[in-house]
Design a protein around this nucleic acid. Structure first.
Length: 281
DNA sequence: ATTAGACCCTGATCGC
DNA sequence: TGCGATCAGGGTCTAA
């Protein structure tokens, strides 16, 4: 579910209540997420201060005073929600089903941070600070799409040597890290490239144009607080609103906002792609 | 070496 | 109202 903009939005919501503060107590209610939680995780988190909350791709990284980094991934349905215990245990309507509250952190200063994940595709692990980028889940990740290493020369050369559809190439986290099904579809529409087109058959100029387009769509989505379709919520429980700006995603049969042609849908490597057959070639 | 498909799990929605 | 089929912002692993 959450792609880079959603994870960044969660990070920005959590940072003010976690950074510089101590986790008074951590509680693990269900250790069987995508993989078993690391041994003794609750004890290794309790009474540690969160020095910094970072993001790499779709992962959140909390550097702790113990010298370990807590690595978190939200999978498809994961949420991290902040509630204020000083105001009483208040759960408003758009909050998640408490049966899926798997990890709970009590934070110094009166905040409770709850990891909730119905499908349990999410993950957490602990790794020595400084080794996070070598963790097996992070080691193969490509450049950050909003970072300097992701530039026109890089993308042109990577696409040129792949024969997969460009949709699959951009979803490959080894090529660029953080895009998912929504933002790939949106970026390809903005660039006028069909998701079905073979990567190595895109002209260099058109491939290069994807770089600023990807940056723009991610930046706009972060500014909107991400996209809320089914499960995703910001850390404060509110909805993101970038879904209202979708041009093609989840709009099969509806008119293309640029030309009015009905949006088409096709399944590529098991996931739906949406595109305008007139604007995208 | 690539690439499509199965799989992990729960919940919402749709057609009958 | 109930029931099965299908689908969903993630990623890994297997088999062709």
């Amino acid at each position: 579910m959450p792609e880079l903009p959603e994870v960044e939005t969660v990070r920005r919501g959590l940072a003010p209540v976690m950074e510089g503060r101590t986790i008074l107590r951590a509680e693990v209610r269900r250790p069987d997420l995508r993989w078993p939680l690391p041994p003794g995780m609750a004890e290794r988190l309790s009474r540690r201060r969160v020095e910094r909350l970072r993001r790499r791709s779709k992962y959140l990284l909390a550097d702790l005073s113990s010298g370990e980094t807590l690595l978190m991934h939200l999978g498809m349905s994961g949420r991290i929600l902040v509630s204020r215990t000083t105001l009483g245990a208040f759960r408003h309507p758009q909050s998640a089903d408490a049966r899926h509250d798997h990890v709970v952190f009590e934070i110094e200063g009166g905040a409770t941070v709850t990891y909730n994940d119905a499908r349990r595709f999410g993950a957490m692990d602990l790794v020595p600070i400084g080794d996070a980028e070598h963790h097996w889940l992070l080691a193969g990740l490509g450049p950050e799409p909003l970072g300097n290493a992701f530039d026109e020369a890089y993308l042109v050369s990577e696409l040129r040597r792949r024969r997969t559809p460009v949709k699959s190439a951009l979803l490959d986290q080894r090529l660029v890290a953080g895009l998912g099904n929504i933002y790939v579809s949106e970026a390809l529409h903005r660039a006028g490239i069909s998701p079905l087109r073979r990567s190595d058959r895109i002209s260099a100029a058109r491939a290069a144009s994807l770089v600023p387009v990807i940056r723009d769509v991610l930046t706009e989505a972060i500014d909107a607080g991400g996209s809320s379709l089914r499960d995703y919520r910001r850390a404060d429980g509110e909805l993101g609103y970038f879904q209202h700006a979708f041009r093609v995603y989840d709009r099969e049969g509806l008119p293309c906002p640029a030309c009015g042609t009905p949006i088409r849908r096709a399944v590529q490597s098991g996931r739906s792609s949406f595109w305008c057959p007139a604007c995208q070639r």
